[in-house]
Design a protein around this nucleic acid. Structure first.
Lengths: 260, 260
DNA sequence: GGTTCGTAGTCAATGCCTCTGACAAAGGCT
DNA sequence: AGCCTTTGTCAGAGGCATTGACTACGAACC
């Protein structure tokens, strides 16, 4: 199954020059690399250069160490990614506690996750859709389930509602992060589509697009997110056995909370 | 990745070690490789072996050609991924047309995208969050906007609602695909968390998790998806200037629209 | 203080990847 | 037939994930 005739001469031209900070530099002091330092530097690199160019050799060099030094602390790149994922959840959820109104708690959790993922799109796009089951994650899970129980859901229904909320938060934040982690050029081309390509669309072929072509570019990410979030939260408010009695949730302005 | 798919691949693509699938084989006939053939084989490879091992050399060999042959038809791997993305949308939306009830149209579009992404998780995880702006995509956009207009939304509001629906569909389907594209072992570990790890959680530390620990494992992906989808669709029904008049949607209270 | 010992950091190497530029054969064109 | 573009092939540069061997640092113990 393995290839038999592929080239193998790639590793021949090894220059022996001693680049600074690279291979051949002075040896690092013994305690210099810790998991915390490595994760922190990973975040810095990912924020600065995106997820595509992120590699363990680069990370090692950025730390002033050998390209393979990180492997002394993480068994594999995937192992490091998990640590980064947990670090993100921790950053998102520090100081989180339940609010009086459970709907507020739910909204805050989702908003916090989204904000952190948007702040670190490279890291988020690597680690979204991974669950770490470490303390930071468990705490959020507990808070979310607490809100669901506070709403009066019980047993299997509560489990379904919690999973729906958790998956929704992860899917949305992960999706936005994946987009923001693309090459800036690609992102620009994508956003430009709303502003240019759809403007010039053929009326006969795509009449509905044509009809609102002028309005498509003005929609912001925040618009979209808050709209979907309110649909989800209001929907659960309407379905909850024990809805929230906050002032803002009993007023009819949100159209579904307790209108009619 | 360690699944026993190699036998199937060998039976079809790489007949034996001396076949044209490797360097040194006989030259392929001139029109053998077309974008369509290459995309089709990519999908087959991605379905069989997942996204991690997918490479252009492998693809070339699977086609019985040179490892670099694909570069004659696609400028880069990213270019190929875009073509795959469009192919997925096409597969998801063939035969799609507006239903009498706009809410049904919306639900069908979202369900179709999800079904296709779940059927090709490897391909979907590569191509989600990319927009192609090619005909297949434009047609869905047009249908979706048509449904939104049918609901009575206009101008900027219609644009917001459409974008929310589209992003929701993409985020959800992409999120599920990303999970399904992980190593089967990782997926198993993740699912097992609901069944085992959460069962043994400490009551004092995470009391809410503890309270519904027995119910967490019984939630299915379909449960979750249909729940969120109904929240979104029902929410737009409630907010629409011209709600649907289908029998199932005319009930005056939104909370009873789709009781579960 | 000196010796020992585990380990963090370094080095060399393997095999795979993306992508390029040079080259050659295969057809279409006149 | 002769020419020209296209398309498949080949060799290779440079990068990445990962491994096994080596080495020196610093703690532990005498």
């Amino acid at each position: 199954m393995t290839s038999s005739t592929s080239g193998r001469a790639a590793a021949r031209g090894e220059r022996d020059g001693t680049g600074p900070g690279r291979r051949g530099g002075r040896r690092l002091r013994r305690g210099s690399l810790t998991p915390e330092v490595i994760v922190a530097e990973s975040l810095r690199l990912l924020d600065a250069q995106g997820a595509d160019g992120f590699s363990l050799p680069k990370l090692g060099r950025a730390l002033g160490a050998d390209p393979t030094a990180v492997y002394r602390h993480f068994a594999s790149k995937d192992d490091l990614v998990l640590a980064i994922a947990d670090r993100l959840i921790e950053e998102a959820m520090t100081g989180l506690s339940a609010r009086p109104c459970w709907a507020d708690t739910v909204a805050e959790v989702v908003r916090r996750l989204r904000a952190t993922y948007r702040a670190h799109p490279g890291a988020a796009s690597l680690s979204a859709s991974r669950t770490t089951q470490r303390p930071a994650e468990m705490r959020v899970v507990n808070v979310l389930i607490g809100a669901v129980l506070q709403a009066g859901f019980e047993g299997a229904a509560a489990a379904r509602v919690y999973r729906a909320l958790g998956d929704f938060a992860l899917a949305w934040a992960g999706g936005e992060a994946a987009f923001l982690a693309l090459d800036p050029g690609l992102q620009q081309a994508d956003r430009a589509a709303w502003a240019r390509a759809y403007l010039a669309v053929d009326q006969a072929e795509y009449p509905h697009i044509w009809q609102i072509r002028d309005d498509l570019a003005s929609v912001t990410d925040d618009d979209i997110f808050e709209m979907i979030l309110s649909l989800v939260v209001d929907g659960f408010l309407a379905r909850a056995p024990r809805p929230c009695t906050c002032a803002k949730h009993v007023s009819p302005d949100t159209a579904t909370a307790s209108a009619t």
